[in-house]
Structures are given as structure tokens and as C-alpha cells.
């Protein structure tokens, strides 16, 4: 018998093992839900699957009686727009400041300590300031996402620039590159796939700040809806919304990974770093 650490599941077995915890959670949920509903058929805490289906039907496929919009889609578009703006602006800031800080000592001397300090401010603590400065509209929500994740991306990319072997930067100079040309032909192309990594890592935090901002002040959005229906203990709406947010986050992460693999094959390597 091999050691436990050397035992590897075969592929179908591994996939089966991967699905197993989900099935167990589902079974436990159904059992608990049945028990509660048997005791009190009006229980709202653990709704049955029938109530989920009707809630999803109501939220995702029928226009709202009050606004005429289909709520799930309206919420999704509102949230995704804020998220895309926030993450996009953060990526741009991250790329610019990361390159400048990582490559140019004269710029990083004044900028690095500032970025490090800013990144330690708990973003939620300054949400009120954002509401005061930008009002309760879209700008404050986007700003919260930017303040939440941009410092992380800046610092991560600065580190990635520092990790580019100095040999490459020197080589580029011996080929006649100015600082600008080193940036556009060496640093920038090597940094884009690393930016995608950084964005993937910060997406979780971006969702967190988005939903927090929406929960506090919004008129539509996934976070807004979840916190709105909480008042009615509408678990039949909250749980599908949470599942939907999770699904969106997963799709974003997976498509960024795929995109990066497709555009930057050299970054993901083909495993053949031959020697000799």
C-alpha cells in the first residue's frame, strides 16, 4: 500500500469526488427543509424547491408589476456595469502606477509609500466620505470598488515588474531601447497576463465592495435586491440570487483564465523548458 500522500484519484473518480460535497449539502438542505416545512408549512427559513422555482420564475422571467422590468436582469446589468467600471478603472490605474513604481526609482520614491499607506485604509470606513463626495449615485459605488482593489493591483504589479529578470531590462538597453521603449516593448507585454492574474484575484474583493455599496444606497442591483428582500425573510429569492452572483463570479474568473491562455501562450508555458 502506498503512502496516502502518493495516492492519486483517477480522473472520473476525481470528478465524482468533486461533485460529492455539493450533493451532500443538497441532501442535508432538502432533509432540513422538509423537517421544518412539516412542522410549519409557512416556514420561510429553508424554502422548498417549489418555492425556489416560483421565485426564480417571478424574478427572472416575469416583468415586475411595479416597474415593468424583469428584476433579475435589471439588477444584473446594473451590478455588472458598476463592477466592470470599477475593475476596469482599477486595472488601468494598477497597470500605470505598477509599471512606473516598479521600473522608475525616481517615481517610486514618492509614490510607493503613498500607495502602501492608501492600501491600508479600510475602504468601507471611507464609504461615507464617498457618499458625501460623489452623492448616492453610480460614482460612489464605482469609487468604492476602485479604492478597494486598485491599491492591491498597483502593489501586485509593481512586484511583478520587479520580478522581471534584470538581465532582460539590460538586454533591451543594449538593443537601443529608451525607458519608454523598454516599457512598451518589454515591460507592458510581459505585464498584461500578470494583470489578468491580479484582476482575477481581486474580483472577489470587487464583488464584496459592490454588494456592500449597493446594500447601503441603491435602487437596483444584485446586492440591493438581496438586502431589500431580507426584510421579508425571502430566502426563496436570496438564495437563488447568491447562487447567481457566485455563478457570475465563476464565469468571469474562468473566462479571464481562458482568455489569458489563448492570448499569452508563452506565459502559461507548455511545460517544455528544455535544458542543454
Amino acid at each position: 500500500m502506498k503512502r496516502l500522500m502518493n495516492l492519486r484519484p483517477t480522473k472520473p473518480f476525481r470528478i465524482g469526488l468533486g461533485i460529492l460535497p455539493f450533493i451532500i449539502i443538497l441532501v442535508i438542505y432538502l432533509a432540513a427543509s422538509n423537517v421544518r416545512l412539516a412542522e410549519n408549512s409557512r416556514d420561510k427559513l429553508l424554502p422548498s424547491f417549489d418555492s425556489f422555482v416560483s421565485a426564480i420564475q417571478r424574478m427572472a422571467f416575469e416583468p415586475s408589476k411595479r416597474t415593468g422590468e424583469i428584476l433579475l436582469w435589471a439588477d444584473t446589468f446594473a451590478s455588472l456595469e458598476r463592477l466592470a467600471l470599477g475593475v476596469g478603472i482599477s486595472a488601468l490605474i494598477g497597470l500605470t502606477l505598477g509599471i512606473i513604481n516598479g521600473l522608475i526609482p525616481l517615481a517610486s520614491a514618492p509614490l510607493s509609500p503613498l500607495v502602501r499607506t492608501l492600501s491600508l485604509i479600510p475602504p468601507m470606513a471611507i464609504l461615507p466620505i464617498l457618499f458625501i463626495m460623489f452623492g448616492l449615485g453610480e460614482a460612489s459605488k464605482v469609487a468604492l470598488i476602485v479604492i478597494g482593489i486598485a491599491p492591491f493591483i498597483v502593489r501586485d504589479l509593481q512586484q511583478r515588474v520587479a520580478e522581471i529578470p534584470s538581465e532582460l531590462l539590460i538586454k533591451a538597453q543594449t538593443l537601443g531601447a529608451s525607458t519608454w521603449l523598454v516599457i512598451v516593448r518589454v515591460v507592458l507585454p510581459q505585464l498584461i497576463p500578470r494583470l489578468i492574474d491580479a484582476v482575477r484575484l481581486s474580483l472577489g474583493a470587487a464583488w464584496l465592495f459592490l454588494i456592500a455599496a449597493e446594500a447601503i444606497a441603491a435602487t437596483e442591483g444584485l446586492g440591493y435586491r438581496i438586502f431589500l428582500v431580507r426584510r421579508y425573510l425571502a430566502m426563496d429569492v436570496i438564495l437563488p440570487y447568491v447562487a447567481w452572483v457566485t455563478f457570475l463570479a465563476y464565469v468571469m474568473d474562468a473566462s479571464l483564465r481562458r482568455l489569458s491562455k489563448k492570448i499569452f501562450p508563452w506565459y502559461h508555458g507548455n511545460g517544455v523548458q528544455a535544458e542543454g
Binding site: P165, L168, I170, K171, A172, T174, R185, Q190, W266
Partner: peptide
């Protein structure tokens, strides 16, 4: 460092994000 002095290191002398042809063209392009 400047273009009058060329260098080959033991490692990390070529740009991983450029193909072979691109690596050699880079000097002319820059």
C-alpha cells in the same frame, strides 16, 4: 548599457513574450 555593447548572459537573455524572429527583429525595431 547601450547599443555599442552587446551582451549574452547565462540565462534570461531572450524575451519570453516574443517569438524567435521577433526577438531578433527587436533590436532593429527599437
Amino acid at each position: 548599457p547601450g547599443p555599442d555593447r552587446g551582451i549574452v548572459f547565462q540565462r534570461y537573455s531572450v524575451f519570453p513574450h516574443l517569438k524567435v524572429l521577433g526577438n531578433v527583429m527587436l533590436g532593429l525595431e527599437l
